[in-house]
Computed example of a mutant assay.
Amino acid sequence: MNGEAIELRGVSKTFGRVRALDDLNLSLRAGELTALLGPNGAGKTTAIGLMLGLLRPTAGTVRVLGRDPRDSRTRTEVGAMPQESALPTALKVREAVTLFARMYPAPLPVEEALALADLLPLADRRAGALSGGQARRLAFALAAVGNPAVLYLDEPTTGMDAGSRQAFWAAAERMKEAGKTILLTTHYLEEAERTADRVVVMNAGRLLADGTPEQLRARIATARVRFTSDLVLAELRHLPGVEAAEVDARGHATLTTRTPEALVTALVQSGLPFSELEVTRASLEDAFMSLTASPQAVPA
């Protein structure tokens, strides 16, 4: 599928006097993994509720796969892994996945869905006996078994150990390679930075930024250069490209710059003594904190 998988045009949503979304315009391209980020109360849950057809917009239009998200055909092409899942605890894992598969017109084979979620060793265990991380993997299998064109993942790796997280993201990558459109919400920004093709940042019901992780990091365009030295603050500030400089009581210097390569080159060529050099570029978390601290930010 090409083009836009999800479109919100001029969407507002109010709950009494509370405006959860305010003239939101957002398009999600088919076949991409998009991370939807924002602080608590940003409007992410409301936006996803509209995309799932669980809510109706107060104003504007919502389209999923070109149709109303409440359309019965649309629902059969959408999978959702909510943050809190009411699992069929009395059923075994394989039984639960089989039950959900029967609700869709062209599901994945049950064994394939179990393998995708790394659940084959747990297939005969009751869902109610799973650990927190295992239950999240079952929620993923239930969302994926319908072979959806669009998949919503809400805080998917909460409660998973490191191995399960790695297996989960490998499975998500395989689904994306198969042409699935994936919308992710997460508080683990390093996961979003590593996996997302595109990042959308919301706050107060509005769109703040939209771009690749690299584009969002570039908006603050800074790096930190750290090293240990006997240089005084005045000397550090005269190095090329330094925007800010700090030195602690132990001689650990931290310099902020937009041109770390030029700064490090000048430092080496100066012949001034230093050690323990470390260069850290701006992360997605740095960009996120900067954006959400500035309500007047506008989309890229």
Rank of each mutant, 00 (worst) to 15 (best):
E111R: 14
T158M: 05
G133T: 03
V201C: 04
R198S: 08
R206Y: 04
K176H: 05
L116M: 12
R102A: 15
R198Y: 10
L153R: 00
A149R: 15
Y104F: 14
K180Y: 06
A178Y: 05
F100P: 00
V201N: 03
R194E: 13
Y152P: 01
R125V: 06
T212K: 13
P105T: 12
H187W: 06
T212A: 14
A178I: 06
A162K: 07
A149K: 15
D118F: 03
A170M: 11
A115G: 13
V145H: 00
R194D: 11
W169R: 05
D161V: 09
Y152D: 06
R165L: 09
R136F: 03
A106F: 10
A204P: 10
L99V: 09
T185P: 04
V110D: 00
G133S: 03
A223H: 09
M160K: 01
L233Y: 11
Q134D: 07
A115C: 11
G163M: 13
L151W: 01
T228G: 13
R219L: 14
Y104K: 03
A167I: 07
R226Q: 15
L236H: 05
T186D: 06
T228E: 15
M202R: 07
G163K: 13
A113G: 09
L142H: 07
L122V: 08
A144C: 13
V110S: 02
L189R: 05
M175S: 02
W169M: 04
E177L: 13
L153S: 01
R206Q: 10
L138Y: 00
A178C: 11
P121C: 10
F140S: 03
E190T: 13
R102E: 15
G179H: 09
L116D: 02
A204Y: 12
R226W: 09
T185K: 03
A117D: 00
T195C: 13
L108N: 06
E177K: 15
L216A: 10
G128I: 04
T212E: 12
F227R: 01
T228W: 11
D230R: 15
L184C: 07
A135P: 01
D124F: 06
N203Q: 15
E193A: 14
E235D: 15
A167P: 04
A162Y: 11
P105G: 11
R224I: 09
L216G: 09
T186L: 08
M175T: 01
L183P: 04
M175K: 01
A192D: 09
P148T: 05
D154K: 00
L183H: 03
E111T: 14
E190Q: 14
N147D: 14
A113N: 06
L122A: 12
L216H: 07
V201K: 00
D118P: 03
A209K: 04
A106T: 14
L184F: 07
P148S: 08
A106L: 12
L184R: 01
A135Y: 00
A113Q: 00
P109G: 07
G211I: 02
A135G: 12
A209E: 06
T228S: 15
G133N: 07
N147P: 05
A149M: 13
D197Y: 02
E177F: 08
S131V: 11
S131E: 10
L120R: 14
A143D: 08
Y104N: 05
T185D: 09
E191M: 06
G128A: 06
L130Q: 02
P148K: 02
R137S: 01
